[in-house]
Design a binder for these strands. Structure first.
Lengths: 249, 249
DNA sequence: ACCTGAACACCGTTCAAGT
DNA sequence: ACCTGAACACCGTTCAAGT
């Protein structure tokens, strides 16, 4: 065997698995998830991926067309099993769906920026997921345009919290960087920002924009629960209006 | 004058503006917004940016530390004036805030992936924005932990819809790509996906996951309105609970 | 069919040098 | 103080060549 690849890390020269040493689309995606988990999305490259797989970078292109497609498969894989079972009240279904989406990303926080930020490329449409959500919203009473709006609201809500909660810290995010944010936060002008100043201990590192740790290190469990309940309650109100269309606010 | 830069586009050799030909942080950020508007986020590079400014790429680094900081300034600039005036009922304040955020991104849709996907780097904390939102939520009756949760819910909601609505189409997104999505969508199995099949004309290109155009081309105005009302209604419900803590669901 | 290997046209960033 | 210019260590992807 020649050297595995010019880009393979010299410290860990794992040979390509010999049992069935074939490169497949599945093995490529699995390795991509590992690579992103361990080294982050910013450092993910075809060349590093090939190094991990013990092949030349260009070998990957025989199995999958480009980098974006790999990332689309990665998010598909990570979120794959997140659709809850169908025999639930629609409210509980939404609660479970939101929670399971979050759990899936919590297990692979570095893929969070991929959720919702891009129209997934040529990856296949997740028909089962879409159908079940639509069916549940139909059970709630939504039809026609209302069904479209309710569906879009739920999908938007699925991404809203977790993409921010698990958003990666900037690469320069050392202790100095964290200390800088904390310092600026503590130096808030209590005259100009009385509400912020009064609640600073509660908000620091626990509120979006005002934190210096990602959800991977400091999860926002309580806020997420409230977020999910808010979405469900809002849709409940929407469903009531839909079912009693005579009463307009 | 020597040639402006090895990377300047030869077709449009705009000289560096001569009136006051100094390179400043502000001019760099402004040029970055133009560059992203015209060519997209994927094509944005320091080298192209320098070409537009008529300087060598490395000149940029004297004014701003790195690429991520430029992007942080870009999103700060784009969302800068989005905070509504303070003399509004908290519900109307939230409606306006959501709408103005969306309008800001609609004017610069290519920056959408930057909203929420990353913890903004060393860019300064938008104290005025945070304070006003917190003050409005205090008016609604939220205090302590509830205030934190309500705040996080609103900030999550701010990003949820628009990052998806304006998510960029994949780079390979030619007519063939669009036709492929439509074909797969139309070939849906009506047995396995009855709800989807029954509502296909309503959902096609108007529902997340099931569309082939970004919100920049095909905005989802009606769904966004419903989304905003859902968030406000959910928070109203939350506020009622907070004000009458004896009554638990 | 599947992978190697060279090559192309790019990147962000550092650092010494100019003025 | 502010910019040039060379250089370093990377990228994704194409394409011919091997087996």
């Amino acid at each position: 065997l020649p050297k595995p690849s010019p880009n393979s890390r010299s410290t860990s020269n794992r040979a390509r698995s010999k049992a069935d040493g074939v490169l497949t689309r599945e093995r490529i995606v699995a390795a991509a998830i590992q690579e992103i988990d361990e080294r982050g999305l910013a450092a993910f490259s075809i060349r590093n991926l090939a190094g991990r797989l013990g092949v030349y970078p260009t070998a990957v292109y025989w199995h999958i067309a480009n980098r974006n497609l790999i990332l689309a498969e990665v998010v598909g894989q990570v979120l794959g099993g997140a659709s809850p079972s169908a025999n639930l009240d629609w409210r509980d279904y939404l609660r479970q769906l939101l929670g399971r989406y979050r759990s899936a990303i919590k297990a692979h926080p570095n893929v969070a920026p991929l959720v919702g930020a891009h129209l997934i490329g040529n990856a296949s449409i997740p028909f089962a997921f879409v159908e079940r959500l639509l069916a549940k919203l139909s059970e709630a009473g939504f039809t026609g345009e209302d069904l479209v709006d309710a569906y879009n609201t739920v999908v938007a809500a699925l991404a809203g919290f977790i993409t921010q909660e698990f958003a990666p810290v900037p690469e320069e995010g050392g202790d100095a960087w964290r200390a800088g944010i904390q310092e600026r936060l503590l130096s808030v002008d209590a005259k100009a920002c009385p509400t912020l100043a009064a609640n600073l201990p509660l908000l620091a590192n626990r509120a979006f924009i005002l934190r210096w740790r990602s959800g991977a290190e400091a999860p926002l469990d309580a806020s997420f629960e409230r977020y999910a309940e808010t979405v469900v309650a809002g849709l409940e109100r929407f469903a009531e209006q839909v079912r009693a269309p005579a009463i307009r606010r």
